[in-house]
Nucleic acid binder design. Structure first.
Lengths: 196, 196
DNA sequence: CGTATATCTATCCACTGTCAAGATACAAGT
DNA sequence: ACTTGTATCTTGACAGTGGATAGATATACG
């Protein structure tokens, strides 16, 4: 989706690091986290099976880097939604929630990697930082909106619940809706969760 | 946890089917879904690596059966909570939600298998039936409580969100609470999700 | 006593991760 | 321009692991 690079030079791929991350995400989407293999990723990236070792220690290393990248895009998706929304605290929170769900629907494989699998190494500083940033962001929005501990948990839970269930193919009711109706539903549920 | 059977007769284990399910769950808990292997389960059950094939076609077959069993216990946990609660519709729904979370915390590995992994084969009639039953139950409770589509989604989402995030080790805020406080929190969140 | 069923042993094959050794590109320094 | 060095990538081989299958063997049951 993003390599109009120098088309083909056999050696020195140019940016194999990024290419591997892309291939890994695609691989995750098609075969699932459990069937993930370094060699397969290498194959997909059109590179020999030993090449990834130069950029990532092993499979978990790749997945950890990918998860960190995921959290950054995750936050970015939310921030974009917020920019397009009204500036009052409630609207901002709702927008963020909608972004949360949108991210999950757009990149289900990444989402599952980040939240549903034990594979990424969360003691890795880069990943830890990215994940913490996402958490901090949410906390702040809820707080600005007048919420406390319970409201933080509530907001996170509804939104995460919707996202996870939809990715898992449940929640047919919501899945059949148009994007707009779905966003409205998320907004409503999130709003209710914040009312004392 | 439940085989005071004839202690040891080398051949004809007696109820290898059940024993394999137990071993599989333990294995899931210790090594995670991604590292799951039939041979390892057989080892743990004290049986040769080819034995499981007679009871389950393959690894996914075992996991599918285990997931189905999981959904039955899942429903049962909720029903037990409901029995101990007041009979009005709202109390019943809250109790069910508390049961949902309790199940996830008690058997995190099973929970993840059921909701967070693509491995069980949901086209298998037995599993499908068990999963549908759980869904039907929830739907019914919400409906009896005066809710419609949106409230069904909301109830399921909050509760599932809490469960999934706690299993994943997030939601520190809630995790540090006592069981009672946690149940109270779940109840509050669930109640809010149902108020129009 | 004979037959079906459950289990074991023994192989076979595919796949993975890792390592070592060689090839290629690129960047400096001389 | 030539050498030297280093990071990148390739090829090939190895050991471990897992799933599948076939045939032998023990047990249960009629």
């Amino acid at each position: 989706m993003a390599q109009p690079d120098p088309p083909k030079s056999p050696y020195h791929h140019g940016d194999l690091y990024a290419a591997l991350l892309i291939a890994a995400e695609a691989e995750l989407g098609e075969r699932g986290v459990e069937a993930f293999s370094l060699r397969q990723v290498a194959r997909r990236a059109g590179v020999s099976h030993a090449a990834p070792a130069h950029h990532f220690r092993d499979a978990n290393g790749l997945l950890t880097a990918l998860a960190a990248e995921g959290f950054r895009r995750f936050l970015e998706t939310q921030r974009q939604k917020e920019l397009a929304a009204k500036p009052d605290p409630e609207s901002q929170l709702m927008a963020s929630g909608v972004g949360y769900v949108e991210f999950a629907m757009t990149r289900p494989a990444l989402f599952r990697l980040m939240f549903g699998s034990g594979r990424p190494d969360y003691s890795h500083p880069d990943l830890r930082a990215a994940a913490d940033a996402a958490y901090q962001h949410l906390t702040q929005l809820v707080t600005l909106n007048g919420g406390a501990e319970l409201e933080i948990a509530a907001a996170w839970s509804v939104v995460h619940g919707v996202a996870d269930l939809m990715v898992a193919g449940r929640l047919r009711g919501l899945k059949n809706l148009s994007t707009e109706d779905r966003d409205r539903a998320v907004t409503t549920m999130l709003a209710r969760s914040q009312r004392a």
